[in-house]
């Protein structure tokens, strides 16, 4: 675990309950995320982890509870509002724009930074051109950071899985988010790709100071990366604390970890 610049509270989730019909997906969940930390959410499949992220960035509307982000308390917010307040995310099942190139995907991630109107865009001169070039530079910085120069102009639909995950991270980073939600960024990767991805996550956190909420199944990764870990099970909050506390928590062991996970 890295000792670094963890600041005050950035996001506070209070008593969130979410259900679809009779199915209760989240049941009275409360936790917070501090500025600059890597906060993991773990739990078995169907525990409500992805739903929790969907609530945070406004895609699902919880029946109860409230979310305080950067000091503002809301019951819910529209996804694009969340995006414009600096929340970006990646998805469990890759949700890239398949017909577009890597560069275009990342440029789309910057759409909130771009303002010129249809008229200038049609002429492609003046402000539209300047804006496009400025944002292209920013996009290229991310492409360099993620080391994906070679696939810049390739349609993403045809890229291998590991690279798609990386482009998706790039698209989220392009928005220069304050809070980055990563939904199983390493699922289905081999150990080499996982290592790369871990390094990117840590670099994003330390270099850009981005706060990260991470869902991940690989316990070794979670315990290594996270500052704090929240454990969900069937929509209920099982435990919350430092990685070591969670690892040794008997309820968590019983419900999820089974036997203590092999370490290092």
């Amino acid at each position: 675990m890295i000792e670094h610049k963890i600041g005050g509270e950035m996001l506070k989730v209070e008593n969130i309950s979410l259900s679809f019909g009779i199915m209760k997906v989240l049941d009275d969940i409360s936790f917070d995320i501090k500025r600059g930390e890597i906060r993991s959410i773990i739990g078995p499949n169907g525990a409500g982890k992805s739903s929790m992220l969907n609530v945070i960035n406004g895609f699902y509307h919880p029946q109860q509870g409230s979310i305080t982000f950067k000091g503002e308390t809301r019951k819910q917010m529209a996804p694009h509002v969340a995006a414009s307040h600096g929340i970006a995310r990646t998805f469990q099942n890759i949700a890239l724009f398949k017909g577009m190139s890597t560069l275009d995907n990342i440029m789309t991630g910057r759409n909130l930074k771009m303002k010129t109107n249809l008229f200038w865009q049609a002429l492609h001169i003046g402000p539209a051109r300047t804006e496009e070039l400025e944002n292209r530079e920013a996009a290229e910085r991310i492409i360099d950071f993620l080391d994906i120069q070679a696939i810049r102009k390739k349609p993403v639909g045809k890229l291998p899985y590991g690279l798609q995950k990386r482009v998706e991270l790039g698209r989220a980073l392009a928005a220069e988010p304050e809070l980055l939600l990563l939904d199983e960024p390493m699922a289905g990767m081999n150990s080499e790709e996982k290592e790369d991805m871990c390094r990117f996550v840590l670099d994003v956190n330390s270099e850009f100071g981005t706060t990260i909420a991470l869902i991940e199944h690989d316990m070794a990764v979670v315990m290594d990366l996270s500052d704090r870990v929240l454990v969900l099970d069937y929509g209920k909050q099982l435990a919350d604390g430092l990685p070591d506390e969670v690892r040794n928590n008997q309820t968590v062991i019983d419900a999820y970890l089974g036997i203590p996970h092999e370490q290092d």
Partner: peptide
Amino acid sequence: RNWMAIRDMDIAAELIG
């Protein structure tokens, strides 16, 4: 690009703004 984003994956497009 925003049009194509809506075409390819409207939910993801909405979530990135």
